[in-house]
């Protein structure tokens, strides 16, 4: 059991972390670097005689050490997601549900829904320079939403009968009925186009990496199960 969990989590998590970092560096980090030009005041929006602001990101090559940090943290985080996912596989196996690559893909999409899509519904991925509510309040709501959504999805997937389904929907809805912490003013300095593209790209990269993590972890899981 430990070997099966460890192999799925480590190999799939490592590969998913590298994939996520590469996709982030290609599609998301340039927008992040561009936003820092607004954050530092090097670029400004809606100044006197406004005729739009320049578009274009600084080159990635100017901060290679910084991007190695992004790679390292992604690997750590995605191996973490891999362990939680594989622990879920093991719980499912105890209930007689076998996981393979295809079912792993569904688990991965569930992970995306719980860890990226649901919290983003209340707290969109933040462009650097975003002024937002108190960090601990946002982290608390974020973590509560992730746990409630994951449990809600599990109730819907594994529960028997309409009461479990209704309970699952209620758990997924609850954080949004309570509402995420927000300020009562807007402070955005960067172009709204940039913030919107940043949020959708961050979600898209998460979707790709979660799908890959689930597929790869499920594939390794079923191979290890055949060996055991």
């Amino acid at each position: 059991m430990l070997k099966q969990i460890g192999a799925s989590a480590l190999f799939a998590g490592l590969a998913a972390g590298v994939l996520a970092a590469l996709l982030q560096l290609w599609f998301v980090v340039p927008l992040l670097l561009e936003a820092e030009l607004y954050e530092s005041g090097a670029r400004a929006h809606f100044t006197d005689g406004y005729v739009g602001s320049d578009a274009g990101a600084p080159p990635l090559g100017d901060a290679l050490g910084r991007h190695m940090g992004t790679l390292a943290i992604n690997i750590v985080g995605w191996i973490g997601f891999g362990f939680v996912l594989a622990a879920g596989f093991a719980l499912a196996a105890r209930r007689g549900v076998a996981v393979d690559a295809r079912r792993g893909l569904l688990w991965g999409l569930g992970g995306f829904t719980a860890v990226a899509l649901a919290p983003s519904f209340g707290l969109p991925p933040e462009l650097p320079g975003t002024v937002a509510a108190e960090i601990t309040e946002r982290q608390t709501w974020w973590a509560f939403t992730v746990v409630a959504t994951a449990l809600g999805l599990a109730l819907m997937a594994f529960g028997r009968g309409p009461a479990w389904l209704a309970g699952g929907i209620a758990m997924i809805a609850a954080p949004h009925l309570i509402g995420a912490p927000h300020l009562d003013r807007y402070f955005g300095a960067a172009a709204p186009e940039l913030a919107a593209l940043f949020s959708t790209r961050a979600l898209g990269v998460s979707a790709a990496a979660w799908a890959f993590l689930g597929l790869a972890a499920g594939w390794i899981w079923s191979r290890e199960a055949q060996r055991a």
Binding site: G69, T70, A116, P125, E126, I135, A202, V205, S206
Partner: peptide, 16 residues
């Protein structure tokens, strides 16, 4: 925080 900054923003974790 500094090392993780970009990946937290890009993954949608609350950062600052």
């Amino acid at each position: 925080h500094d090392v993780a900054h970009d990946s937290r923003h890009a993954t949608g974790f609350p950062c600052h």
